[in-house]
Simulated scan of single mutants.
Amino acid sequence: MGTIGTTIKPFKATAFKAGEDFFEVTDEDVKGKWAVFFFYPADFTFVCPTELEDLGEHYDQLQKLGVEVYGVSTDTHFSHKAWHDTSERIGKLKFPFLGDQLHTLSKNFDVLREDMGLADRATFVVDPDGVIQIMEQTCEGVGRNANELVRKIRAAQYVRENPGQVCPAAWEEGSETLSPSLDLVGKI
């Protein structure tokens, strides 16, 4: 799985979110809205808290776009809570963290490092139909950029809402789009 245009597989995970009791999240909960699955290797690590903090700084903006964010690692929901309670950076985050200790999500999205039991650093944007529209995977030492993620989500939402239009490189909301046709061949 884990490829553009595929539908996410069924899953069930226990989540931690600040100020709430633990709760269950399933693939059914994701249907009908945009979602980001933000996989990272492990709690209490190095690059991960910087990425998660960056993503957290964009969470309200993503919520306004109708996007729910799920932080996912192979740690348990208990570990997510402990990290939240002991880390200044993680303690500020408002989005839910999914415990994937059985590796269901990591296997479903094909980001599990079997030899280590850890997820790769990967992001998946899923549309309201449960179809993966955007994916990004980086090596262990390279953090992601939430500004670029928000830009890509806006573009994916625009394309979904405007059939026949595509967003060129570095497209920003309000910029010109393209209408692919034979008239454009060789003119771009």
Rank of each mutant, 00 (worst) to 15 (best):
V72K: 06
D75C: 05
V159P: 09
L93S: 03
T86M: 09
D54T: 05
L98M: 04
H103Y: 13
L118Q: 12
I153C: 07
A82V: 14
D60R: 12
A156F: 10
I153M: 07
L118W: 10
K152F: 01
E136R: 10
E114W: 02
V142S: 09
I153Q: 06
T74D: 01
P128W: 05
T138D: 12
E136V: 11
A146G: 14
G99D: 00
E88Q: 11
V125I: 11
T104S: 03
T138F: 08
W83G: 12
L98S: 02
T86K: 13
M135C: 11
E140M: 14
H77Y: 03
A156L: 07
A146D: 13
W83Y: 15
L118E: 11
Y70D: 10
S106F: 00
K107E: 09
K107F: 02
T74M: 01
V159C: 09
M116R: 13
D129P: 07
E88R: 04
D75A: 00
D60L: 06
M116P: 10
F97I: 02
A156K: 15
G91W: 10
G141F: 12
F95S: 04
R151T: 05
H58E: 04
L55K: 06
R144W: 07
H84V: 12
K64C: 09
L102H: 04
D85R: 09
T86S: 15
K94T: 01
G141Q: 15
Y70S: 15
R121G: 12
I134V: 12
L65E: 13
V142I: 11
R121C: 12
L105I: 02
L62F: 06
H77F: 08
V67Q: 05
R151P: 04
E57M: 06
Y59N: 06
V111D: 03
G66W: 12
D60V: 12
E88I: 08
A155F: 11
A156G: 11
E88K: 13
S79P: 02
W83I: 07
K94A: 08
A122T: 11
A155N: 12
D60P: 11
Q61H: 06
K152Q: 03
Q133R: 15
N147R: 15
E161G: 13
R160V: 07
